[in-house]
């Protein structure tokens, strides 16, 4: 029962991070500025949600842990690649 509530708390916290980190996407800031917020929402928020899911179905933990690790890796590397590729945009265009 208590696990259930912890899981709900994790998912809610993740959803809050999603909302808070996605919001600056519609603003007019540089892509790098938005990227910082996306790393909050997409990496940290999604990880919190996945931990909440993991607490609900613990029998599938191997695949969920694999997904959790690869989520963190891929999102971080995607952030790095996007930052590397979009730099210099502001100076020449």
């Amino acid at each position: 029962m208590i696990l259930q509530w912890i899981s709900y708390a994790c998912i809610s916290f993740g959803l809050f991070l999603w909302l808070w980190g996605t919001w600056p996407l519609v603003g007019r800031r540089s892509p790098l500025y938005k990227l910082h917020f996306l790393s909050v929402s997409d990496t940290l928020g999604s990880m919190a949600i996945m931990i909440g899911v993991l607490l609900r179905i613990p029998r599938e933990w191997p695949l969920l842990v694999l997904a959790l690790i690869s989520l963190a890796l891929w999102n971080t590397i995607l952030g790095y690649v996007l930052a590397y590729c979009s730099q210099g945009e502001d100076t020449d265009g």
Binding site: T22, V26, P31, S46, S86
Partner: peptide, 29 residues
């Protein structure tokens, strides 16, 4: 509802990198 935010950003975004960011966000979500 939250998924609507990056969709809106991708639709409206005039800047190509903002669009890329929005698409990355949509994929994960």
């Amino acid at each position: 509802l939250i998924l609507g935010i990056p969709l809106y950003a991708a639709w409206k975004g005039e800047h190509i990198w903002s669009k890329m960011l929005a698409f990355a966000s949509i994929a994960t979500k």
